[in-house]
Design a binder for these strands. Structure first.
Length: 123
DNA sequence: AGACCCGGACGCG
DNA sequence: CGCGTCCGGGTCT
């Protein structure tokens, strides 16, 4: 029985044929993170058995299904925003912050997650 | 084959 | 506590 690990329904418009196997694993795992919660690159990597959080960031950067595949729900393990759409600061990051704010995920003035409890270490 | 990348852990000052 | 350093896996050229 292949693909039984996840019960998450694949949203319309998402075509796994357009991405690599690794990207698919990342995206499928990410689809389990609900609005109002976030996860980290490291946690996401762990969830799919990958030792390189950076490789996950790489996959998310090239996410062709945003925002259906919610790559904006991935922050750094330290609770800072991380990157978005190839940028680690500037307007793009502001966009990411606003997407999260719309899901009741807020950041303090020091740039860290206001409510760390919202970060799923495992999922 | 080489460079690049949306991170993270660790070591030091 | 804040920095520098190295490691890591995957993808693009």
């Amino acid at each position: 029985m292949a693909g039984m690990a996840s019960k998450v329904k694949v949203p319309a418009g998402v075509d796994w044929g357009r991405v690599t196997g690794f990207q698919r694993r990342v995206f499928e795992a990410l689809l389990r993170v609900p609005a109002g919660r976030v996860t980290s690159y490291a946690a996401l990597a762990r969830a799919i058995g990958c030792a390189s959080p950076r490789a996950v960031g790489q996959a998310l950067r090239r996410n062709p299904f945003a925002p259906v595949v919610p790559c904006h729900r991935v922050v750094t393990a330290a609770g800072t925003l991380g990157g978005f759409n190839g940028a680690t600061s500037g307007p793009e990051l502001e966009r990411k912050r606003r997407l999260l704010a719309a899901e009741s995920v807020h950041f303090s003035r020091d740039g860290r997650l206001a409510e760390p409890v919202r970060l799923l270490a495992v999922f």
